[in-house]
Design a binder for these strands. Structure first.
Lengths: 160, 160
DNA sequence: AAGTTGTTTTGATTTACTCAAAATAAGGGT
DNA sequence: ACCCTTATTTTGAGTAAATCAAAACAACTT
């Protein structure tokens, strides 16, 4: 029976995940991983705020250290929607896609019906060795669809 | 007979395009548009270098001014491949996709077989109003595929 | 030719992120 | 339990890409 692709709070045990990946277990990493389990698609900013609720003097650098190390170890995937700060997710090892709100930047997972990458073929490979077809769906989320976007800064990056 | 989707050097007449879009015709805009016609997928940096060959004291700000105005007028599309500076293209009005070299950032157009946007369906819309499915193919171009990437800074963003 | 409004210039500012050196802590070996 | 090595964190500076803002200037209208 395969493991579910989505990480839920109760089934991510940072200590075990980290040790298995060959990374040392530290408070900082535990906190970042737990925050990511609770908030899929969190930005570095959001991760820092979350972590600072328990550890007020955590630094942004420690967040970037952690997610970068996690990414290198294959524990985390980083997504960079155009016009929005990068986001991080624990869901790796499957080829899924994303739906992004143009206004607030909230991200949702979209299952890939194909499974493996690349899940689409390019009509012309231009001589490249292609390994991935990244699909980003763009739209406006239900919370933003009613709002006018008078001051673009007004409600930026608030969700999730 | 529809106009071809790809802009070629000889069929972009900046003066006409600009005036038709309701934008004033200036040296700066003419230069940026001509540079874009010659180099599809140019970055702001590349546009500036190109323009400076004829006008050495052109500024980066004028490039950003121009492309931003063009984008608002629907003359230019901006693409932001993850990990690379933004790029600009004159090919608008069709729904095509891109192939990006992970190493040098070079971009190729990939025709969309569907045509209109969104050309894919999300398996779940999560309550969003979805208007676009952006597809980015990732790979390594033929010029980079042989090279080792010893110093990541060594040959950055050189192509095209 | 003059006036209005849009555009460019100059220079500062911001955001998101990376780099680097010193201080510290994790985990293996004894 | 302690030491040692090496990984990790901290602190602070630095960077790239892009935006903002006010004053100078130029395009188009009449």
């Amino acid at each position: 029976m395969p493991l579910p692709a989505t990480a839920h709070t109760h089934d991510v045990v940072p200590e075990v995940v980290l040790r298995t990946a060959g990374l040392r277990v530290t408070d900082s990493r535990r906190a970042v991983m737990q925050a990511l389990a609770d908030q899929p698609h969190a930005s570095a900013d959001q991760l820092l705020s979350t972590i600072q609720r328990a550890t007020p003097d955590a630094s942004m650098q420690s967040v970037y250290n952690a997610v970068t190390d996690f990414e290198r170890a294959g524990l985390v995937r980083r997504i960079e929607p155009a016009g929005h700060p990068g986001r991080f997710e624990l869901r790796v090892g499957d080829n899924h896609h994303h739906l992004v709100c143009r206004q607030c930047g909230q991200v949702e997972d979209i299952d890939c019906v194909v499974g493996g990458a690349p899940c689409l073929d390019a009509s012309n490979d231009h001589g490249y060795v292609i390994d991935e077809a990244e699909v980003t769906f763009w739209g406006v989320c239900s919370q933003c669809v009613g709002k006018k976007l008078e001051s673009p800064q007004a409600s930026k990056e608030t969700h999730e």
